[in-house]
Each structure stands twice: as C-alpha cells, then as structure tokens.
Write a protein that binds this DNA or RNA. Structure first.
Length: 294
DNA sequence: TTGATTTGACCAGT
DNA sequence: ACTGGTCAAATCAA
C-alpha cells in the first residue's frame, strides 16, 4: 500500500492532460478539415481524425481511472483464498464444478461510464455473460478483453437504456494492459443512408455486426456521442479515507456543449453542425484546467 | 476443429 | 431473500 507517490499520481494526471490536449488539437484539425469543401480535402480523412479524438479521450480516461486502482491495493485480493476450503458437497447440478469462492465480486473502483448509440469502441471484446436487470427492459451484457489470457483485465458491461432512442450505457472496468490498438479490427466508417452527416463507428467483423442484432438496433447508425463520463475520484486528500466517492463529470462540463455532439461526416456540412463543432473546440480550451476538477 | 456466444447455475454483496 | 456478476457446459458459426 501507499506505493503510489504523489509524483507518480501527478505524472499520470499529466499524461491524461497531454492526451486531452492532443485530442483538442486533433479536434481543431478536424474543424479545419470540415471547413474545406469535400473535394478539396487532403489525404487526411475526417473519420480518421474523429477516431483519434475518441482514442485520446478514451486513453486519458484510462489514465485517470488507473489512479484509483493504484490507491486501492489488493481490492480484489483476500477472499479467493477461501476457494479451496473443503466444505463441498452441497447443491450441485449437471456435474458442475464447485465454484464457490472461485471469483471475487469486483468493487466499483477503476471504472467509468459512457453513453453511446453504439456498443462498439474499437476494442476486441469477448462476451462472457448476459443478465436481465431488474427494472430494465433490456438485458445487460458482460464483456472481457479478448486478450485476457495475456493478462489484460479490461472488462465492460453494456446495457441498452430504456427509451425511444437506441443508446447504450457502457461501464468500463480496468484499463487495457494488452496491446489492443494493434489488434483491434480496422475502423470502418460508413455513411448513414438516412443522415450522411453522421459518422458511423463499426468494425468490419460480421460476427460483431450480428451481435448487434440481439439488441435490435440499427447497426448502421452509430454517430460519435458521449453524454457523460463517470470517473472515480482520483485524488484524495485523506489517503486513509476508505469511503471512496465518485463524481459525475457530464460531457457538458468537458465540452461546454449542452447537447449531443454529432460529428459531421461527408457531403455538405450544415452550418449548424459546424457551429456546434466551433463551440466544442472553443470550450475544450478549458481542458487545461481539467485537473482542478479532481 | 476451433473459437465465440448463449444460457442456466453458482456465488457474493446488501 | 433478492439482485447482479461470473463461470462453464452446451451450442453455434466460421
């Protein structure tokens, strides 16, 4: 315990800041690009820039959330030792192994939440469970990183939110330790036949496309939108304080936008959309003060 | 044949 | 007791 020095903590926060600022710079590039007529645009694609922005934010979130995991030493340790205790011989069906104590219920540490119209995030996930959730019309799906065998502990839970719009709340647990960026399937950006101004994030893996079907959503419509980001409190003045609090950081607080951000894609760029991006980029200048929030 | 998904059971936390 | 998270056998798909 206590191996995380202040210097280390600040280094991670600094890394997160660097990534956020990088995302901002890419957003400026995207803004500039979108101001050009489609025919005059260079080799740099808007979808590539949008993906880089997404990854910058995703990486910075991982960086920030990892602060918390370091502050909770062995949060998952302990009780697993009781797994081998010999009081077997209770209810067993279909010859199932005794799994008592074989897993630990995770704490809510090192987690963050996003709300997307898509469950895709360009990481390679493997589904390991699905559960009907009390009070929800839709089941919750459980995914772990495909490269768990190599030690990556990243998990995510995806649940469709009740409502007319197809929105998925994704809770991420632990950050990727695998080299997932080299392995993730290539990003395929497809225009939406209904609204060509929307960027569609999806993989080229047809099986993953099929997986969307069980949720009954239209897999072709996946515009980039993050409604809120939930981060664990990264800095605690009182390290002995066991009660960790979380704080909700609305997307609005980061971007200054009070509406969903829809990234224009191809064809004519509507002035309203461009104006929205103007606001986003301008408000992102506040990112420099981001660390004061935590 | 192999890897991914489905699904019911098991288990932990409240 | 209830709810949600995980496991693992069965099943599916490439």
């Amino acid at each position: 315990m206590g191996s995380l020095s202040f210097d280390n903590l600040h280094a991670r926060k600094r890394n997160a800041m660097v990534k956020l600022v990088k995302g901002k710079e890419i957003a400026v590039q995207l803004q500039t690009l979108l101001r050009e007529p489609v025919r005059d645009r260079g080799p740099v694609s808007a979808e590539n820039l949008a993906f880089q922005i997404y990854r910058s934010f995703s990486d910075s979130l991982s960086e920030l959330s990892s602060c918390t995991s370091d502050q909770i030493p062995a949060a998952e340790g302990g009780a697993s030792a009781s797994a081998s205790s010999g009081d077997s011989g209770s209810k067993k069906k279909r010859g199932v192994k005794d799994r008592r104590g074989c897993y630990k219920r995770r704490r809510t540490s090192d987690s963050w939440v996003t709300v997307f119209p898509s469950m895709e995030d360009n990481y390679a996930w493997r589904k390991y469970g699905q559960k009907a959730i009390f009070g929800s019309d839709h089941p919750r799906s459980y995914f772990r990183c495909t490269y768990k065998k190599e030690g990556c502990k990243a998990l995510k839970q995806v649940q469709r939110i009740n409502g007319d719009e197809v929105m998925y709340q994704t809770t991420y647990l632990n950050h990727h330790t695998c080299n997932e960026t080299l392995r993730a399937p290539p990003l395929v950006v497809d225009s939406n036949p209904i609204d060509p101004h929307l960027i569609s994030f999806q993989t080229s893996n047809p099986s993953e496309q099929d997986n969307h079907g069980q949720y009954g959503n239209n897999s072709t419509k996946k515009p980039l939108v993050v409604s809120s980001v939930k981060l664990e409190e990264c800095v605690s003045e009182d390290a002995s304080n066991e009660a960790k609090s979380t704080l909700e950081v609305p997307w609005h607080d980061i971007t200054g936008l009070d509406y969903d951000v829809w990234a224009p894609y191809q064809g004519e760029v509507e002035s309203a959309s461009l104006h929205g991006l103007d606001m986003e980029v301008d408000q992102l200048s506040d990112i420099q003060n981001f660390h004061y929030i935590f």
